[in-house]
Write a protein that binds this DNA or RNA. Structure first.
Length: 461
RNA sequence: GGCUCGGUGGCAGAGUGGUUAUGUAGGGGACUGCAAAUCCUCGUACAGCGGUUCGAUUCCGCUCCGAGCCUCCA
């Protein structure tokens, strides 16, 4: 089993060898919970869930430790809670519930740990104190700041030097910073803001320190894979490395993985551009498996151009796959499957999907023996297990499409189909075609096969 | 301005120093009362210009174009 992953730090595809193959440890930066998760947030969740599934398959389910944090204290949360006139606790609790509901629809496995920032405050305070003791951090105007000048390797992940950034910068430097890129480890809270007692007064943590404290607590000082969106490379992950490695003097994460952006009409989706699509809204129109499939149809490091066409195409493809899986009624023999090389090669999911299509072709071949057919279906199901797809019963998949219709509609449709079939048997094709046309106008498509007429919705939903 | 990453057939999207995926849309055919589904088949894509090579879409250089980061962000 030879897994290769692209590591941002070395800038190369690397053979994956865990620090300890009895326990493979991975960490993914999770959401800041102040609003509904958008489809761009779903990308790392889905991609690295796929990585988690592949690792579990290679090393064993109980030998992979996956932590994904929740940032539940942050300025954006405070602002949003104030606007909504609720407490930050209320807001984050609600948002976390929505988040879990949304990503469960995407068929994402639960991580082994899902720590919240507010539950890791003592560990953060300890790490900050340690950094102060080691002179990597300083206190100024009630803030504790990390001194980037003290960290010789600062910039190694994002491959930039402090000098370069200063030369090209166009932001004003906060007065309490010694150097422009110093970042906050701890900041004071006003009386009406959430805060915790600390050696530096009542305050709250800066954004980056939580991940350093959490990884240490749940995965250890050094661990295998740290992942997240490409926009976290700088400054978030750069700062995490600086904090953690300065604090314990060992390397932090062995491999760094970053997914590309999700774009809408060629532009990055972001709050400031106002082109946000929430997972929740998309789920009203497309089921989670379609969203998931869409996300995996582009390689995770490439930008993905998210569009209605992509979703429609994913739906068509899934229809085809589910239909083929259901062609023959043979029992699964549960034969052991090999992990496909495509997925072992830096999670090449588009290639895996093309391989699935080739297998589907075999399923559609009437000349294939039941034994071979079953073997092909098992392979497809295994691809599905690794990518979190094809989990529904094939019958359920097609029924699911029709949930938007009322029972009255459905029985009306059934009635018309019966009439049409009677007409067909009487060779009254004129009437039969008239009924087909009538249903077609309602967006219902009929398929006659094997003495049975099945129907589906034209737009597939 | 500095840094990073890209430009593949109508569209989406892998990959490769020579056999040119896969899907989707479209053309043709088989099948079908008609359709659908399925199968077969077709269109010969790799931004431009140089260089290396017996041979480059794939390696190197330059040019053009696009996106991103340097500020909260998955």
């Amino acid at each position: 089993m030879n897994l290769k992953i692209f590591d941002t730090l070395s800038g190369k595809k690397q053979k994956f060898t865990p620090i300890n193959n009895k326990k493979v440890r991975m960490y993914v930066c999770g959401p800041t919970v102040y609003d509904f998760a958008h489809i761009g947030n779903a990308r790392p969740i889905i991609v690295f869930d796929t990585l988690y599934r592949v690792l579990r398959s290679i090393y064993g389910e109980d030998r992979v430790s996956y932590a994904r944090n929740i940032t539940d204290i942050d300025d954006k949360i405070i602002v949003s809670a104030n606007e909504k006139k609720i407490s930050t606790e209320e807001l984050t609790k609600q948002t976390i519930n929505f988040f879990h509901e949304d990503i469960n629809s995407l068929n994402v496995l639960d991580p082994d740990f899902e720590p919240k920032a507010t539950e890791t405050i003592p560990e953060m305070i300890l790490m900050i104190s340690d950094l102060i003791n080691k002179k990597f951090a300083y206190i100024k105007e009630n803030h504790v700041l990390f001194d980037t000048n003290m960290s010789k390797e600062y910039g190694k992940l994002s491959k930039r030097s402090l000098d370069e950034m200063i030369a090209g910068s166009r932001v004003e430097v906060a007065p309490y910073k010694k150097n422009q890129f110093d970042f906050v480890l701890w900041k004071p809270s006003k009386n009406d803001e959430p805060g915790w007692e600390s050696p530096w007064g009542r305050g709250r943590p800066g954004w980056h320190i939580e991940c350093s404290a959490m990884t240490k607590k749940y995965l250890g000082e050094s661990f295998d894979i740290h992942a997240g969106g490409a926009d976290l490379v700088f400054p978030h992950h750069e700062n995490e490395i600086a904090q953690s490695e300065s604090s314990h003097g060992k390397f932090f994460a062995k491999y760094w993985m970053h997914n590309g952006y999700l774009n809408i009409k060629g532009e990055k989706m972001s709050k400031s551009l106002g082109n946000i699509l929430t997972i929740r809204n998309l789920l009203k129109e497309y089921n989670g498996e379609i969203l998931r499939f869409s996300m995996l149809s582009t390689h995770y490091r490439q930008p993905i151009n998210f569009s209605r066409e992509l979703l429609e195409s994913s739906h068509t493809q899934l229809n085809k796959i589910y239909k083929a899986l259901n062609l023959r009624n043979v029992k699964n023999d549960g034969a052991q499957q090999l992990i496909p090389n495509s997925l072992l090669d830096d999670l090449n999911t588009p290639m895996a999907i093309s391989e699935i299509h080739e297998l589907v072709n075999k399923l559609n071949d009437k000349n294939i023996s039941d034994k071979d057919w079953l073997a092909y279906r098992n392979q497809i199901k295994f691809y599905g297990q690794l990518m979190g797809l094809f989990t529904l019963d094939p019958n359920a998949w097609f029924v699911k499409d029709k949930k938007s219709l009322s029972n009255e509609d459905k029985s009306e449709i059934e009635k018309m189909i019966n009439e049409r079939n009677l007409a067909r048997h009487a060779h009254n094709f004129e009437l039969a075609d008239a009924i087909r046309l009538k249903l077609d106008k309602k967006g219902i498509i009929l398929e006659d096969s094997n003495n049975k007429t099945i129907w589906k919705l034209k737009n597939g939903r």
